[in-house]
């Protein structure tokens, strides 16, 4: 998607000497221990994931419960982030908004990864007509402005979180396909593929066992970036009023609600901070992973 956060380019050149299992550990070590930005991102993200996924356990109130007579209350001990127009606990709504955002982006990126990587690997491995057809389609999809494609798709699927996840997944797969195909083209002529083929391994086995593991590092970066894009798009759709179904909160819809009552800044500050931190942590982490996986990049 064109409005993906383009500050980071997934590195295409990565070490292939490292073994896949040790790669995870070394990457994690580099990201978490040697890169303070990465560590910060990871900690914030972890906290937000716990807050979002654990919302049913952590949230002090039901996000839909209306405390009659407590309309537009400023933050207090009873309501940490205040209450909204329908006297609901804003803090709990933010947690559930995070949860929705997480779920949508995980499903969207999941769809994007599975569909995109499969098609990309097939295109790269098979070549010929299959490659042309798939990549032409990828080119076309990538020509669409992501958010506008999602709005168009939502018109087809109807509003709601599932639709948003599906629409964003459809927007996300071409990136993965392009990436996976590139990896496949790079890996195919390598010795271990030739060796596997000589040993009589099937195409399927070669693709999914051997190549996909080695194509992993740049994919991880792409996943992190796509997560950030999905979170952003989900919030934007919520803001435009076509993302979530009332009364369920989304970070974007909470911010849109705040726009109508600028005299009550707490309505804006808390959801905006939650969304901002969420995206910031994803970006920091994607950066750090990218740095860790890129041997050519100079350490800062």
């Amino acid at each position: 998607m064109s409005e993906a956060i383009v500050g980071v380019e997934p590195s295409r050149e990565t070490t292939r000497t490292r073994r896949a299992d040790s790669l995870w550990w070394s990457t994690a070590r580099e990201v978490l221990l040697k890169n303070p930005m990465g560590a910060t991102g990871a900690i914030i993200l972890l906290a937000l994931i716990i807050g979002g996924l654990g919302a049913p356990l952590i949230a002090p109130h039901d996000p839909l419960e209306q405390f009659r007579g407590s309309r537009f209350e400023t933050p207090s001990m009873a309501h940490w982030a205040g209450t909204d127009a329908l006297s609901r606990d804003l803090f709990s709504r933010i947690l559930y908004g995070l949860r929705a955002s997480l779920m949508v982006s995980i499903v969207a990126v999941g769809i994007g990864t599975v569909v995109g990587v499969s098609l990309g690997l097939i295109a790269g491995y098979a070549g010929g007509i299959a490659d042309s057809v798939i990549m032409r389609f990828v080119d076309t999809m990538m020509a669409f402005p992501g958010l506008i494609l999602a709005i168009g798709l939502l018109a087809v699927f109807g509003v709601g979180l599932q639709s948003v996840a599906l629409a964003l997944g459809i927007g996300a797969w071409p990136n993965f396909a392009r990436l996976a195909r590139g990896q496949m083209l790079a890996e195919r002529p390598r010795d271990y593929v030739t060796a596997a083929r000589a040993l009589g391994a099937s195409s399927k086995r070669i693709i999914f066992r051997h190549i996909s593991i080695n194509a992993m590092p740049p994919l991880i970066v792409q996943v992190a970036l796509s997560m950030a894009t999905a979170v952003l798009a989900e919030a934007a759709l919520g803001f435009l009023g076509i993302g979530t179904v009332a009364p369920n909160p989304s970070l974007g819809s909470l911010i849109n609600d705040a726009r109508a009552r600028l005299d009550l800044p707490y309505l804006l500050i808390f959801p905006a901070a939650a969304l901002g931190l969420f995206l910031l942590s994803l970006n920091l982490l994607a950066d750090a992973i990218n740095d860790a996986l890129d041997p050519h990049r100079q350490r800062r």
Binding site: I5, G7, M37, L232, A235, A236, F239, G252, I255, A258, R259, L268, A272, L275, G276, L279, L280, L282, N283, L284
Partner: peptide, 15 residues
């Protein structure tokens, strides 16, 4: 830049 990249444009706009 890290902060501005992370903040969605509409949030920045409302602020």
């Amino acid at each position: 830049t890290v902060v501005f990249i992370a903040i969605p444009n509409f949030v920045f706009g409302v602020v």
